[in-house]
Amino acid sequence: MNNWYMLTLVGNDRTGIVAKVTRILQQNNCQLGEASMLRLGGNFTIMMMVNSELSSDDIITALQAISAELNLQVHLDEIEGRLHEHHIPNVLVTVIGADRGGIIAQVTEKLFNVGFDILNLDSDVAGTDERAIYIMRIEGQALDGIESIEAALQPLKADGIDISVQAIETLIA
């Protein structure tokens, strides 16, 4: 069976979302693949690979009662799912600074221009309402080496953002 969907669920964070949703999926013979589940700004968010012989309409229907109970927004897409193909990042870019508009675009545009492949990006807004701090960590593959990444981000450093570029040397043993 190789019939993958990407299931997206978003709702106000509360306990029991993961347990209840995954139980329903299990009861409908859905198998789960890789998933990202995390709290973003008070919402609980799930992106989860679901393998199922059911149609997308049937999966949505199966989730209807629980999504109504938990007030979750549900979205489902057919995808081409491939497991066991993890890419290993070789560079970590950390961006920390006072929160300001356009920061992700500025950083990621520069990374894109030097062929950086983003594998994982986490960003948090910390601090307080008055003084928000923006914390972003980007892991990816720098195809042209770390120096090109450092050079590309250098102009932004002058702009009062702390940017660090570190090699990730993965140890296989």
């Binding site: 993890h86 990730i168 040397e169 993965t170 140890l171």
Partner: peptide
């Protein structure tokens, strides 16, 4: 902190 993988744990770091 460093990233590791293992011959005994394929496809995960």
């Amino acid at each position: 902190v460093g990233r590791e993988g293992c011959l005994s744990v394929p496809d995960f770091t």
